[in-house]
């Protein structure tokens, strides 16, 4: 748990950066066409949310991110559990994973477009494909790293196979899985924006791209600020979940 002082310092640093941004904009060190000050960006943000469809774009991005992330999480944890629980499966599947994992998710966008067209299904597929890796690899690692003694305890108690998975392996792998969930959420946000830009789906990616093309830099920055906020709130929510779920790790 961070102290109040650290938190205050964090806010101060952020405020200083915003002030610096305002000074640079006011001095016109960068042309106002490209760089609005925080004042103009904030006005554009409020106006966009109140009078334009920025709110709908925000919801679109959140929806794309969460749907892809959930699909990736469910598939990643289930597959990871299957692979991680068996050393044989790990040996068989590891080479394939090593080949697929470093593949940039953006590289499969053309493939996904060919298969799904410029549709929400394409975005869902690409986001899920990109976000599944941290989850999958973390879950495999978590399941493979379960203390062997606990499996003996389970054998001595004659726990059923599902009970071993849900009462021993899954909770034991939970710290790894949560780390994977967090990384996966970041990837999901990035890919949601990329898909919105490329496929013209309703979302902040699309808003940012169009604003840039029309030299509406204040609108562009309003979108970027919202994207930052989405990432921040997502990480915060996972932090809170982690603190609750892993309370037993506190000394």
């Amino acid at each position: 748990m961070r102290s109040l002082r650290d938190r205050l310092l964090g806010v101060v640093v952020l405020a200083l950066l915003v002030a610096l941004w305002q000074i640079v904009a006011n001095l016109k060190l960068v042309s106002p066409v490209y760089l609005p000050g925080p004042d103009r960006a904030f006005t554009a943000l409020v106006h966009g949310l109140a009078a334009s469809d920025l709110g709908a774009k925000l919801m679109g991005t959140i929806e794309h991110m969460i749907e892809g992330w959930l699909l990736a999480s469910i598939a990643g944890i289930a597959l990871g559990a299957l692979i991680g629980a068996s050393s044989q499966a790990r040996a068989f599947i590891a080479p394939t994973l090593e080949f697929l994992r470093p593949l940039p998710a953006s590289a499969i966008i053309p493939v996904a477009i060919a298969v799904f067209g410029l549709s929400p299904a394409m975005a869902l597929g690409v986001i899920a494909f990109g976000a599944i890796w941290p989850m999958l690899l973390a879950t495999i690692h978590g399941f493979a790293a379960v203390e062997p003694r606990l499996y003996e305890v389970a054998a001595a108690l004659r726990l059923s196979r599902p009970a071993v998975i849900f009462k021993i392996a899954l909770p034991s792998a939970l710290p790894d899985i949560l780390a994977g969930l967090r990384l996966g959420l970041t990837v999901a946000l990035i890919l949601a924006v990329v898909c919105e830009m490329i496929a013209g789906l309703n979302g902040l990616g699309n808003w940012v791209l169009l604003s840039a093309r029309m030299f509406r830099s204040a609108d562009l920055f309003a979108g970027v600020i919202l994207l930052g906020a989405v990432g921040f709130v997502g990480a915060l929510a996972l932090n809170i979940a982690e603190r609750r779920l892993l309370a037993w790790r506190a000394p």
């Binding site: 203390e147 003694r149 606990l150 003996e152 305890v153 054998a155 001595a156 108690l157 004659r158 009462k167 021993i168 909770p171 034991s172 939970l174 892993l246 037993w248 790790r249």
Partner: peptide, 21 residues
């Protein structure tokens, strides 16, 4: 194989307990 009416007390109690419970 193991039986429910036979209990095993392991030496490494730290590893034989569920740390999350």
């Amino acid at each position: 194989g193991p039986r429910r009416d036979v209990a095993i007390v392991f030496q490494d109690y730290g590893k034989a307990l569920l740390p999350w419970r």
